[in-house]
């Protein structure tokens, strides 16, 4: 399918273009669907994916651990969590820039193949947080093919709303590790405010998952 490249939104992303056309915030919210489920846990990368998830689940939701640093850590963190909590569903939402930083984690996840872990990579082909410089994925690198090459069995690329239903199911259920590459246009939706204190967020998360200490 030929997609018309168009720019969405202004701000820091003004004038930047990507191959995707979906609006990231709305697409993430639609893909995650109903997040009001105590058995559904989230780890997010920093910046854009962090705010996408916080808007989807609510800025005060304790079942999300949002990173504001340690770029590249989200997927490995989600793996450790998924192994520790096999009865919960863990969804890692990250960006193309962050995943490129530690793409080997896809290999690590593949060989363990935890049935309760899925990764959603929001691919706007740019490093939004640092000023929307073009990333490798806008220059021919396909993270979905890398995921497949790593051996992840359930891989989907979302380019259109018609893909939401199947990809959403992959994120929410599955019998092995799942990977969804969400191709989006370049936009800079508002950040969602939440306390960035890593200790506080850890305590909230552990209380939600493990109960009061």
């Amino acid at each position: 399918m030929a997609l018309k490249t168009k720019n969405i939104g202004g701000g820091r992303s003004a004038g930047k273009q990507a191959s995707g056309h979906l609006e990231r915030r709305a697409a993430v919210i639609a893909l995650l669907g109903d997040t009001d489920d105590n058995d559904l846990l989230f780890v997010t990368g920093l910046a854009g994916s962090r705010s996408d998830v916080l808007e989807a689940v609510g800025a005060d939701c304790k079942r999300v651990y949002p990173l504001s640093g340690a770029m590249g850590a989200a997927t490995s963190m989600a793996l450790g969590l998924a192994l520790a909590q096999p009865d919960k569903r863990v969804i890692c939402v990250t960006g193309d820039g962050e995943l490129l930083m530690n793409v080997g984690t896809l290999a690590t996840i593949s060989i363990l193949n935890p049935p309760n872990l899925a990764i959603l990579c929001v691919d706007n082909e740019h490093y939004g947080e640092t000023g929307f410089q073009r990333s490798h994925t806008g220059l021919g690198v396909d993270l979905a093919r890398i995921a497949e090459g790593c051996g992840i069995q359930a891989v989907r690329t979302v380019i259109d709303e018609a893909d939401f239903d199947e990809a959403g199911k992959l994120l929410r259920s599955g019998n092995g590790a799942g990977f969804v590459l969400l191709k989006v246009g370049v936009s800079d939706p508002p950040g969602v405010a939440r306390n960035r204190d890593a200790v506080l967020n850890k305590a909230w998360f552990r209380e939600a998952v493990l109960g009061k200490a």
Partner: peptide, 26 residues
């Protein structure tokens, strides 16, 4: 136990943070 072969050591650091979020020791 889970035996986790990493591609690079830094993955293991983040893995252990995730394990702790889920109440496990690594």
């Amino acid at each position: 136990v889970h035996s986790v072969a990493l591609t690079t050591e830094e993955e293991g650091v983040a893995l252990l943070a995730g394990a702790h979020l889920g109440g496990a020791k690594g």
